[in-house]
């Protein structure tokens, strides 16, 4: 309704809103978390292979990381499943510093899959004020990029996205690939872009021949290929012009007042990256693992 329904539009201003008096959110610091015996970690709901439920059990690489973080702190893990807001700013507000207005005060101690991007951390809002001053983003643990898979029965090769003028491509609705394919090349791919509730359904449509390719993040595509290894679908090697970022780094986020927690969690994640446990965790799910630039740009 109202509307800026948008993926387009960033509502960084919300961060500047006064917290309502009846709705003051309690931030649990490191010692309180240890004493309470649990760590509350926010992960996205229904987002394989990062975080999802399978056979009644939480699964995914972010869930595995969350388990490791809690175990290393010596506490129990509690997950807070996130319904994504229009953009990441909304997720930060709903799950780290304010809580959603239907669930005031229900926030997590740490959020996974947070951008690890200086420009984003230091972003200013339209009044020139820091947009994310209530949040500390730290601990890069993965690099992500865009990836497509194609059906070799229908397409010989995908040298560039231009081939999608002639072949239907499946994407998740209201996702970045959906926006991208609808607008890139002056909209010439939009007539061949097919929208599905989620990428799994798009992949199923590729198996039945309804679409000839699908596009998502590298991890999503790797996971679907691994889950449907018999289908014979293949990775494309094309580039994604005008996509903004080709690769980006992901880490964790906590409330800005929670630096001690950030140091502890950052150390755990760093050790996992350096000793190979992080890569192994991705391999367990059939995913390629890419080191964040923090570890490679030296």
């Amino acid at each position: 309704m109202l509307s800026l329904r948008v993926i387009g539009l960033c509502c960084c201003l919300l961060l500047a809103m006064p917290v309502q008096a009846f709705n003051i959110t309690h931030i649990r610091d490191h010692d309180e978390i240890i004493e309470s015996g649990y760590l509350k970690v926010a992960v996205y709901e229904n987002y394989p292979p990062y975080s999802f439920m399978q056979d009644g059990q939480p699964r995914g690489v972010d869930v595995e990381l969350a388990k490791a973080l809690a175990a290393e702190l010596g506490v129990e893990l509690r997950l807070q499943w996130m319904t994504p807001d229009e953009n990441f700013d909304g997720d930060l507000r709903n799950h780290l510093w304010k809580g959603h207005y239907l669930r005031p005060g229900q926030i997590a101690d740490v959020m996974l899959r947070a951008p690890n991007d200086k420009a984003y951390s230091n972003m200013r809002d339209d009044l020139g004020l820091p947009a994310h001053e209530l949040i500390h983003m730290f601990g890069p643990y993965q690099q992500e990029r865009w990836q497509a898979a194609y059906d070799p029965r229908k397409i010989d090769a995908v040298p560039s996205i231009a081939i999608f003028q002639y072949h239907p491509v499946g994407v998740e609705e209201d996702s970045i690939p959906a926006f991208y394919l609808a607008s890139v090349m002056n909209g010439q791919l939009s007539k061949m872009t097919r929208h599905y509730r989620n990428l799994g359904q798009a992949f199923a449509a590729m198996e039945t021949g309804e679409v000839h390719a699908v596009m998502g993040t590298q991890a999503e595509i790797d996971w679907l290929l691994a889950e449907h290894a018999d289908a014979g679908m293949q990775l494309t090697e094309n580039a994604y012009p005008n996509m903004g970022k080709q690769v980006w780094d992901l880490g964790m986020a906590v409330h800005d007042s929670n630096r001690q927690l950030a140091y502890a969690l950052g150390d755990i994640a760093e050790a996992m990256v350096l000793d190979g446990r992080m890569a192994a965790l991705y391999a367990d799910y059939g995913l390629r693992y890419m080191l964040p630039s923090y570890y490679t740009d030296i």
């Binding site: 387009g8 539009l9 899959r113 947070a114 339209d126 970045i176 005008n242 970022k245």
Partner: peptide, 22 residues
């Protein structure tokens, strides 16, 4: 309203060209 494109936007842990507005 002012509307502009910006390179630093994220949704569900994915980077994209968003738009800022005021």
């Amino acid at each position: 309203m002012d509307i502009w494109n910006e390179s630093t936007a994220y949704k569900k842990g994915a980077a994209y060209l968003g738009a800022g507005f005021t």
